[in-house]
Design a protein around this nucleic acid. Sequence first.
RNA 1: CGGGAUGUAGCGCAGCCUGGUAGCGCACCUGCUUGGGGUGCAGGUGGUCGUGGGUUCAAAUCCCGCCAUCCCGACCA
Length: 475
Amino acid sequence: MKEITPRSEDFSQWYLDVVLKAELADYGPVKGCMVIRPYGFRIWELMQADMDRRIKETGHVNAYFPLLIPRSFLEKEKDHVQGFSPECAWVTIGGGEELEEPLAIRPTSEAMICSMYAKWVNSWRDLPVLLNQWCNVLRWEKVTRPFLRTTEFLWQEGHTLHATEAEAEEETLKMLEVYRSFSEEMLAMPVLTGRKTESEKFAGALRTYAIEALMGDGKALQAGTSHNLGQHFATAYGIDFLDKDQQRAKPWSTSWGSSTRLIGGLIMTHGDDNGLVLPPRVAPYQVVIVPIPPRKGDWNEQVLPKAREVMAALKGAGIRVHLDDRDNQQTGFKYADWEMRGVPLRLELGPKDIEKDQCVLVRRDTREKSFVPLAGLPDAARDLLERLQAALLERARGFVKDNTTRVSTYAEFKEAMTGRRGFILAGWNGDPAIEARIKEETKATIRVIPLDGGAETPCVVTGQPGREVWFAQAY
RNA sequence: CGGGAUGUAGCGCAGCCUGGUAGCGCACCUGCUUGGGGUGCAGGUGGUCGUGGGUUCAAAUCCCGCCAUCCCGACCA
């Protein structure tokens, strides 16, 4: 088995090595279209199940809309089509014949869903509409990287309609908070929340909000977005309703999405030189049992029965557990193998342990070993998994803190960007030209404006009155 | 889309310059060995050399086209 490139040596290569060697994904035959392999897909399923629960708990229901969108639908919202048409893939032939109207493979579903909403919404009683869909989307990206930027990816997209601006804004912020809590609670990935600048907002949106996470190489990853679409889409797609006072009114819409990109964030937040490190809550296997063969005799008699017993006990306690009973691999190989795959806890069980009615638990993050009596094992394992989950979040928070620099001069800003990068807190006068200049000169962009607008701080470039915002180089 | 590079077994590569029966390491299969941190030995399976054309008695090798991938730029709600 080939070694994983050290993280410090080449972060990009390290990331690719982890994705491929841990068998999360593999390249497909079409550029940018990756195969999500079973181990990677299980992570997605676990994430998806929890995110789906959160979406439903906030009052939304799931539906499914078509993959193909007529060109004329997409063209109805001007900013939207400008933003997305460069990355659209088109179906022009069907059944061997040229189509009258090309069909876009959805890059996102506002156009399709809003068109249907126009048909369905007539009265104030029909509002709010709170729909979500889980699906694939296609965006023709020029540069692709597994999970982070792929031509086709899986995501959820929520699309809602509201009677008032205040309600729409509340919804937008509510879903931003769902993404924040999900990232931190499930992925142990701390994120910034805030508003995007004009240059970074969604095509056709009034306001875009995002969560931003800091990766191990000091670059920021946009991990989820929530848009207040204003009345732009209602206007473009002709959605209106009769209000209580019998006046025709246009609803306010929102959309919000999170994707398989979160898996990339997970990898780059926690992984180390030995490979993946998975937070227990999204780990396909939370515990892997590595049975140790006896020096003499048959492990089928001396070790495996006990190992199966232990596995059953852990499973009974709701822990996802795998027994590695491969007899063609050595113990040391298995240790390295499961570490690479990021399994949070390794349980070693050998003849010596069985004699003493104990086992060895080894944490993936710290490699700390503990001897645990088999009697109370499920509780001890669950407890350790919870502590590990919390420790990962704490460590990641520490990393963000250590890699956040508050600067007051542009020289300091540039210096921070040439070093370890990370988040930079600096004043900005609100001028897009300044934002563009900073990007050109340092590669840093404004990741988010704090939700409260940011503390009053002189602009780092001009010295004019400004607000403190978060900068970083983005993925 | 511009600049550079690379396509040979599942993966990583050599062979190409100087044309002459396709090789190495890992992985995989068999057997033994080993086993509490990536064992060792022996045997074995697997390749129309990215693709189309050209030159030649003969092309992985030389020439031309195309395709794909990677790196750097541009692009990327």
